[in-house]
Amino acid sequence: MIEFDEQKKRLVLKLVYYGPALSGKTTNLLTLHDQLSLDGRGELMLLDTAEDRTIYFDLLPFFYVSPSGMKIKLKVYTVPGQVRHDATRKAVLQRADGVVFVADSHAAQMSVNFESFDNLEKNLSMVGLSIERLPLVLQFNKRDLPDIVPDDDIRRAWGPTGLPVFMASALKGWGVLETFQEILGLTFDAVNARHGLTARFGVEREVFLSEILRVQQ
């Protein structure tokens, strides 16, 4: 959690899209930006890139104000996936409230996915977060492409982790909202359990989710 000021009734949360290089993390954010209503969100901020690859991070902010006046700001980040930007990934992961792991569905990318997931686990523990407790959702992206690992195989390989798994094509625009909704719900539940958002501040889960997830008309 980035900030929680009870006096000012202000809460700033951080979600991070993690995963190997070129798995579609930025495309996820672009799709959210395109599909969700401008009312509940800010502009997508893309920091400097090199050859169209993220080298720092991308940021898409969301806002929600509860009837009781509780202001919740949700900052959704991507990390650079290339191995060499590990320090940046670690910096972006700091104080994250939830992580979406975007995996590449291509058959040749499975070991790369595992490596990146290991890297996530290592970096989480380095910034003092526990992969066991942190809300975490898996997304297998690029389902629209040929030569992908079948659903069954993915569920067999990743099912034992107990993590929610989503199939998506960020480029075609499907599966992205579902993934986001899941991590949003899990993150809300985790923060609610710790800080009593509903009990103390009257923030209702379903209202919060539907406000953030308002689809553009």
């Binding site: 901020m45 920091l47 400097d48 720092y56 991070f57 320090a87 940046t88 670690k90 910096a91």
Partner: peptide, 21 residues
């Protein structure tokens, strides 16, 4: 404002990475 913020973010990120390295 937007450009300054971007510059600040990249500079801070860069500095923290250099410091860490």
């Amino acid at each position: 404002i937007t450009n300054n913020l971007k510059r600040m973010l990249t500079t801070e990120m860069h500095t923290s990475i250099v410091q860490e390295s």
